[in-house]
Amino acid sequence: MNKILTATLAAVIAGSTMGVATAADAQSRNDRQDRREQRDDRRDYREDRREFRQDQREDRREYRQDQRQYARWQQSQRRYNASRYVAPRGYAVRQWSYGQRMPVQYRDSRYVVSDYGRYGLRQPPRGYHYVRSGNDVVLTAVATGLITAVIAGLFN
């Protein structure tokens, strides 16, 4: 009976140590799995950032191409009839060119061409508008008056 009791006790102790060892193994396996998942998550996040940066690059490239489509100086292919042009007080009709600044007086609604579609002009980019100066139309920045493009001879 002593032998049986001793064998049983030894089996119980051995089984409990094996159970602890398997619990520790399972814990370490779970930790490794968690680290792998975290690494995968970081990798996915990194790929998302790369894709986002690539999208931004493509957007900038498209924007630059749109900006280039506005040639700095163009001769109008067609002429339109418009009312008589009167220059702002203190100014005379003159030739404008790319990079110059139009005076504030030209930002008045009498000179801004708001029905650009009627004259075969594309919609101006945000922050820009078309301004009539003599027989020409000038694309300028609303805030600064900086000239971006000149379309010569649009009006009779």
Rank of each mutant, 00 (worst) to 15 (best):
W96H: 02
G99C: 08
R50I: 04
Q54W: 05
V131G: 00
V142C: 03
S76F: 05
G127V: 06
I147P: 01
R32P: 01
A149C: 08
P88R: 08
G127R: 09
E51S: 10
E58G: 00
Q38A: 15
A143P: 00
A149R: 04
R64A: 11
R126C: 00
Y106D: 03
R122T: 10
Y85S: 07
R118G: 05
R132K: 07
V104S: 12
N30I: 12
V142T: 12
V104R: 14
A149I: 03
Q33P: 00
R46M: 06
R53T: 07
G145D: 05
V86A: 12
R107D: 03
Q77R: 13
R53S: 08
W73S: 13
R50W: 03
S83D: 15
D34M: 13
V142Q: 07
S109D: 13
P125G: 06
I147N: 01
Y119E: 09
Y111H: 03
D136L: 02
R94N: 04
P125D: 06
Q54P: 00
D48Q: 13
Y63R: 12
R94E: 11
D55W: 07
Y80A: 11
H129M: 09
S109V: 11
G127Q: 04
R42S: 12
Q123N: 11
R89S: 12
D41G: 10
S133H: 06
R107T: 04
I147M: 06
V137E: 00
E62Y: 14
Y91I: 08
P125V: 02
N135K: 10
D108G: 09
Q38W: 10
P103Q: 05
T140Y: 00
V86N: 13
T148Q: 10
D41W: 07
E37L: 14
V142Y: 03
P125F: 03
G134N: 05
V112Y: 03
W96L: 05
R126H: 06
Y45Q: 15
D34W: 10
R39N: 12
T144P: 02
V93S: 07
R126S: 02
R78N: 12
G134L: 06
S83Q: 14
R89G: 05
Q33I: 13
S114L: 09
G120A: 08
S109C: 05
N30M: 13
Y98C: 03
Q56H: 10
Y91A: 08
R39Q: 12
Q75P: 01
R101A: 08
R132E: 00
Y91H: 15
P88L: 11
R94T: 10
Y111P: 01
T140G: 04
Q33K: 13
Y116P: 03
G99H: 14
